[in-house]
């Protein structure tokens, strides 16, 4: 073997070592995910029952349930989506179709990118200072929803912008060329064409909202609630806070409750995420 061949062999070996490392790394990530799921299911599956889903929390772990958290999460997230979807889409349209050239647009763009990276707990303090205290909404569902809507708005804005940006320029030109106004072009063409992608973004944002815990702890959502929310001014709890409460206790039985509630939470978020991913793969090119 000459030195060239030795060199080539060395390179090939390194190449293979790298690939093996990468695959081991991937397997590691997959294993961790599986381990997480298996563990949660092992711990919680036994507790999952209609009784568990339909009961209020209790001091006795075996009779406790998640109905208050489920209901609170459902109302809080629905209202948050209702608030942030129209505003987020509107903001995205402005940034993409109106504000691209001006300073305000560029400033808002940086601002939005930054907001997307602000820790969720900081939104919680914003909600506490602004909605709970200043607007005196107290620890109501409305205060929680408003806080959460601000938190997921950057996600919706960024997803919608990407979706609108992906509409071919030719469609805009064609519409303008027959005398359509800007809003007509947006309403008749850009929004319908980008709708599936926007929907994907909304679903991901909702999924994120369902799993968020910290900001609602900060605004003071309760941990022990034995009633269903009656209206938007009711006090409430959410499923993740219920889980947090149970995890924080030392008793093994409460940990099992937490695991069972996590199964429910994961079922929701994974379902939404899968729908979003399928939707996107179906409509992208």
């Amino acid at each position: 073997m000459n030195s060239f061949e030795i060199h080539a062999l060395k390179q090939r070996t390194k190449d293979i070592i790298f690939q093996v490392t990468a695959i081991v790394g991937l397997l590691f990530a997959v294993t961790v995910l599986l381990l997480l799921l298996i563990n949660v299911f092992q711990d919680g599956w036994g507790r999952l029952s209609w009784q568990f889903i339909s009961s209020y929390p209790s001091r006795k772990p075996e009779s406790a349930g998640i109905i208050a958290g489920l209901a609170g999460s459902f109302f809080m997230v629905s209202l948050a989506a209702l608030l942030s979807v129209p505003v987020g889409i509107g903001a995205a349209i402005y940034l993409e179709e109106y504000g691209k050239k001006n300073r305000l647009g560029k400033f808002i763009e940086i601002n939005t990118a930054n907001l997307a990276g602000v820790p969720s707990i900081v939104y919680g303090l914003l909600g506490l200072g602004l909605f709970v205290r200043w607007f005196q909404l107290d620890r109501s569902i409305l205060a929680g929803s408003l806080t959460m809507s601000l938190l997921i708005m950057p996600v919706i804005i960024i997803a919608t912008r990407e979706a609108i940006k992906a509409v071919p320029q030719g469609i805009r030109e064609a519409s303008y060329a027959v005398g359509a106004t800007k809003w007509q072009t947006i309403w008749h063409h850009l929004l319908p064409i980008s709708f599936p992608t926007i929907l994907t973004g909304i679903i991901l944002a909702v999924s994120r909202a369902i799993g968020e815990t910290a900001p609602l702890i900060t605004i003071g959502a309760l941990t022990y609630v034995t009633f269903l929310p009656k209206n938007i001014t009711s006090e409430f709890t959410i499923l993740p806070i219920q889980i947090f409460n149970w995890v924080s206790r030392p008793q093994q039985a409460f940990h099992e409750n937490a695991a069972a509630a996590i199964i429910v939470l994961i079922a929701f978020t994974l379902l939404l995420n899968s729908v979003a991913i399928i939707l996107r793969n179906k409509f992208s090119r």
């Binding site: 064609a174 060329a177 027959v178 359509a180």
Partner: peptide
């Protein structure tokens, strides 16, 4: 500007029908 564009039509290089 919309009036101008209505009276002065345009056909583009690549066909761009609406979906």
């Amino acid at each position: 500007v919309e009036h101008v564009r209505k009276k002065i039509g345009m056909v583009f290089q690549k066909p761009n029908p609406f979906p």
